[in-house]
Amino acid sequence: MSLKGKSAVVTGSTSGIGLGIARALAGAGADIMLNGFGDAGEIEQIRAGLETEFVVKAAFSGVDLTKGDQAKKLVTDAEAAFGKVDILVNNAGIQTVAPVDEFPEDRWELIVALNLSSNFYTTKAALPGMKQRGWGRIINIASAHGLVASPYKAAYVAAKHGVVGFTKVVALETAEQGITCNAICPGFVKTPLVEGQIGEQAKANNMTEEQVVREVILASQPTKKFVEVDDLGALSVFLAGDHAGSITGAALQVDGGWVAR
C-alpha cells in the first residue's frame, strides 16, 4: 500500500508506539513530521535515518502539546515543511497511577491536556486543509482504556474515553468530505516505559519478571502476549490508505482479546 505523495504528522513519535507508526508510514512512502521530547542528537539521528532508509522527507517539531497554541503550531510547521498535512496521528500520551482521592491535581490537568485536548487542537488545525483538498486521515491512538476502565487510572481512562468520543464526532462531521477519523485502542504494548514497569513490579512484589508479565501486566489480555508496535504501524498504514475510505468513527481494538471479556 503506497502513501507516496502524502504527508503525515505523528505526535509523540520520538520513541515507542509513535516512532513505530512513523516508521510504518514512512515505509509506505509518506513524508513525516516527528514530534516529541528527548535528546536532540538522538532525535536528529531518527529524523535523518527515516530520510535515508525510506527516501522520504522527515522533519521535527518539538512543540509542547499540552499548550493549545503549540499543538496547532505543530500542524502549521508540517504545512510549512511539506505544503500540506494529509495524515494526522494523535499518539502522544502519559500516565499516572493513584486512587481518585489521592490523585495529584497537577497530573490530572497534564494528562487530560496531553492525552485528550492536544487531539482537539491538532485536529482543528489540520481539518481546514483536509477539507479544501477533499481528503484526509485522522488516526487517534486511544487505548483499551478508552473502552473499559481499571482502578487508579482515573485521568488516563477519562481522557482515553474522551478520545474515542471525540473520534466519533469528527467522523460524523467530516463523513461527506473525503476525511476519515478512527481510533486505535491498543492493549499493553512492550514499549521502553512498560519494560521499566516490569522490573519495578518484580522487585516490589518479589516476583520474577516472567510472573509479572503474565500475572500482572497481561492479566487482562487473554492471549498473554504484548501487542506488537509493528501491528499498530501496519493498521495505521491501512487506515491512512484509500482502501479504508469507508472505515470512519471506529474504535479498533488491538488488545489481545482484553475488551472481549
Rank of each mutant, 00 (worst) to 15 (best):
N140C: 02
E44M: 14
A48K: 14
N205C: 05
S246A: 13
D86S: 13
L127E: 05
Q253A: 14
V227I: 14
H161C: 01
A81V: 10
A22T: 13
F166A: 00
K73G: 04
G93T: 15
E79R: 12
Q197A: 12
P222Y: 09
N140S: 02
V10F: 03
L34G: 05
A92C: 09
I198G: 05
A30C: 03
F226C: 13
A58D: 12
G245D: 03
L114S: 12
G62A: 03
T122K: 07
A59T: 15
K224H: 09
V9M: 04
L127T: 05
D242Y: 00
E215N: 14
P99I: 13
D255H: 06
G162T: 03
F226V: 15
G146Q: 00
A24L: 02
L34T: 07
T52A: 11
L50M: 07
L252H: 01
N115S: 11
G27S: 13
L127G: 02
G18A: 08
G62R: 04
G245A: 01
G41T: 03
G256R: 12
N119T: 10
A126Q: 09
A144E: 04
K84H: 13
S236H: 04
E173N: 06
A24H: 02
K190L: 15
Q197G: 10
A144R: 02
K190S: 10
V9I: 08
P186C: 10
A80N: 15
A81S: 12
E105D: 14
C185R: 05
V85Q: 06
I43D: 08
V163T: 01
N182V: 00
M33L: 14
H145R: 03
A24S: 04
T248Q: 08
L147Y: 00
G41A: 08
V163E: 01
F188Q: 14
K57G: 07
L114W: 11
A149N: 01
Q197S: 14
A8D: 12
L34M: 09
A260P: 03
G16I: 15
A81K: 10
M207V: 10
D31K: 02
T223M: 08
F103H: 08
G41I: 04
E210R: 07
K73W: 06
V212L: 09
P151C: 01
V100H: 07
A154P: 05
L74I: 10
G18F: 14
A24T: 00
E210C: 05
K6Q: 15
T248D: 12
G18H: 11
A154R: 00
M207C: 06
A58W: 04
A24D: 00
V254Y: 05
E195W: 04
I179Q: 06
R133S: 15
Q45H: 10
N90M: 06
A171Q: 09
N182G: 00
C185T: 03
V97G: 06
T52R: 07
G134K: 09
P104D: 03
G256V: 13
